[in-house]
Simulated assay, not measured.
Amino acid sequence: MGTTDIISLVKNNLLYFQMWTEVELLQDVLPWKGNNLNLLKGRPPHKLSNDAEDTGGDKGPSPIQQPEFILPINMSQYKENFLTLECLSRIFTQLGDSTTERILLAIINDDGTIVYYFVYKGVRKPKRN
Rank of each mutant, 00 (worst) to 15 (best):
G96S: 10
Y116M: 09
I91L: 06
T93L: 09
D110N: 15
E86T: 08
E101C: 11
I91M: 05
L83Q: 00
I107M: 04
T84G: 00
E86C: 08
Y116V: 06
D111Y: 14
G112I: 13
N109A: 12
E86P: 01
G112W: 15
I91H: 02
I107C: 02
C87F: 06
L85K: 08
Y116W: 12
L83K: 00
G112A: 13
Q94P: 00
D97K: 14
V115T: 12
L105D: 10
N81Y: 02
L85T: 06
I91R: 02
I114E: 14
I103W: 09
I103V: 10
F92G: 01
T93E: 09
L85E: 07
I108C: 09
T99F: 13
I108L: 13
T84Q: 03
I114H: 14
T93V: 09
S89N: 13
D111N: 12
G112M: 14
L104N: 08
I103G: 05
G112R: 13
I107D: 00
I108R: 10
E101H: 11
I91A: 03
N81P: 01
R102Y: 12
N109C: 12
Y116Q: 09
C87Y: 04
G96V: 06
L104F: 07
A106M: 07
N109T: 06
S98C: 06
L105G: 07
I107Q: 00
D97G: 08
I103S: 06
T84S: 03
D110Y: 15
S89G: 08
Q94V: 05
N109Q: 12
L104T: 04
L88A: 03
L104P: 04
T100C: 12
R90G: 05
T100A: 11
G112V: 11
C87D: 03
L83M: 05
V115N: 12
D97S: 10
D97P: 04
L104R: 11
E86A: 10
I114S: 15
T100M: 08
Q94D: 03
L95V: 05
T84E: 01
R102H: 13
I108M: 11
D97M: 14
L104V: 09
